[in-house]
Amino acid sequence: MDAQLQVITFLRLVMITLVPYVLAAQGTMLGGRTGVFSVAQEGIMLVAASVGFLAAYYLGGLLYGVLAAMLVGGIVGLLLAYFTTTLKMDQFVIGLALFFATAGFSSLAYKVAIGVTLIPPLIPTLPDVPLPVLSQLPLVGDIFFRHNVFVYLAIVLSLVLYVLLYRTGIGLELRAVGESPLAADSLGVNVTLMRYVTTVVGGMLMGLAGVYLPMAYTGTFTEDIVRGRGWLSIALTFFGGWNPHFILLGAFFFAGVEVLAFRAQVTNVGIPYQFLLMLPYLATILVMIPGFRWARVPAFLGRNYDREKRAQV
C-alpha cells in the first residue's frame, strides 16, 4: 500500500469509529448539562445493541433496529430521570444499578431469542451513502463523504447541539438548569421537564451508539461488543469539557487511538497485541489528566434538585 492510500484508509476508519463515541458522549453531555450524570452508558449501549439487533433481525429492516434501540435507550433514560429527578435518589447508585440490569438484560434477551448457536445470525451492515457532488472531491470525498448515515448524523448532531446550547433561548435555560436549578426555577424555567427531556434524549443517543456496533461492525450481537466504549465516552465528555464541539474534536482522538491499535495489530509492529489492545484505555487515562483540569463541569452535575429542601435547614 502506498502512503497516501494508507492515510486515506486510516482517516476513513477514524470517521467510522468515532460514531459511537460521539453519540454516547453527546448523550452524556446533554443529561449532564441539566445536572443528571449517567454512568449507565455501557449498559444502555449493550442493551440497545442486543435489542436493536434482534428487532432488525426479526422484523427484517435496519430501521426497526434503530427505532428499537432508541426506544430502549429512551426507556432507561426515563427510568434514570424518574429515580433521580422525581425520587431524588443517588445518581451514581441508580446509574450503577441500571448498568447492571441493562447489561444483564442484553445477554438475557439475546439468549432467550436466539439461544446458543454455532453460526451467529447476521443482519446486513449499514450501507455507505456517498453524498452527491461532495463525495466526488479528491481525497476529502473519500475520507468524509462516503459513509453510512450514522457518520453524517454524528457530525450534524454535534453541530446542531452546539447551536442549540449556545445560540438559542432554550439552550440558555438548559445550561442554567445544570448550573443553578434554583436560579432557573425562580425565573419560571421548568427544571423537572428540562432534566427529563435531556436525560431521555441522552439515553436515546446512547442507544443509537450501542446499535451502531452490530450494524456497522459485526452484523451480530456478542456480549463483549461494547468493550468499554460506554465508559470511554464518559471520559470523552470530560475531555471535551462538556461542550458539544470539543466532544466532536476529542472523538477524533479516541477513534484515532482505537484504529491505531487495531491497525498496529494487523501490521505486526513487534509489540504483543495485548498491549496494543490496552492502548485505548491507557491513552484515555492519560488524557484525563489534562482533561479533568480544563473541563468546566456543570456546577450542579450529579446532584438532585429539591425546590423545598432549603427550608429544612
Binding site: 435555560e173 442554567a176 436560579a183
Partner: peptide
Amino acid sequence: LQVAPFTVVENIALG
C-alpha cells in the same frame, strides 16, 4: 439566585 458563569443580561433575560 444567579447563574455564576452567565453574563448579567443572560441572568436577567433567562426564561
